[in-house]
């Protein structure tokens, strides 16, 4: 049996999204496929799976590497990959040190920045357009800059702890 749910998560809340998958898995619903704001779950034993997500540009070699370690690709949406692993096959994390967590956040920040600047550029080009599309672009850019700030905050917290330990 499967069920499909529609949800919106901000990029900077990806940890909440991941937490939701794992709460669902605890309740016996494992993520089966993903689409834009669309999540399909399949019934499983409660706690049978751990689900993780990562921003990682499409790289078949990376997926193969993940599969070698017992993980399984659930799907991809834009630059995000969704993976799951049976809890009986051991603990499942994508990152195990501070450095690689920081790198991941920086990757997300770069993407937000690029989209943000694109919106500013298009917004400026559209500034004299009577339909006010330019205004929408500027709103998008402002939102993305807010997201960038949130990601930056997370990065900074990790960097502070990195000064003392690994």
């Amino acid at each position: 049996m499967t069920k499909t749910l529609y949800r919106w998560f901000w990029v900077w809340d990806f940890e909440k999204e991941e937490q939701w998958f794992n709460e669902m898995a605890e309740q016996g619903w494992v993520l089966e496929s993903v689409g834009f704001c669309r999540y399909t779950f399949r019934q499983c034993e409660p706690g049978e799976y751990t689900v993780r997500m990562e921003m990682h540009p499409y790289e078949p070699e990376y997926i193969e590497f993940m599969e070698e370690t017992g993980a399984e690709l659930v799907g991809r949406v834009f630059q995000w990959i969704y993976l799951r692993k049976k809890t009986s096959d051991g603990e499942f994390n994508i990152f195990s040190d501070i450095d690689s967590r920081i790198e991941h956040l920086q990757k997300i920040a770069r993407v937000l920045m690029i989209i943000g600047f694109m919106n500013i550029a298009v917004g400026l080009l559209n500034a004299f357009n009577p339909t006010h599309v330019g205004f929408l672009n500027m709103m998008c850019a402002a939102l993305l800059m807010y997201g960038l700030g949130r990601i930056h905050g997370k990065t900074e917290a990790l960097e502070n702890s990195r000064q003392i330990h690994e």
Partner: peptide, 28 residues
Amino acid sequence: RHGYGIMQVVEEYSQRRIRLAAGTLYGA
């Protein structure tokens, strides 16, 4: 060793203290 082999042996060497995660290992 291959990737998974590295993960297993590091866990063994460190007496299960360090469990390398696949993403971190791949990058390293």
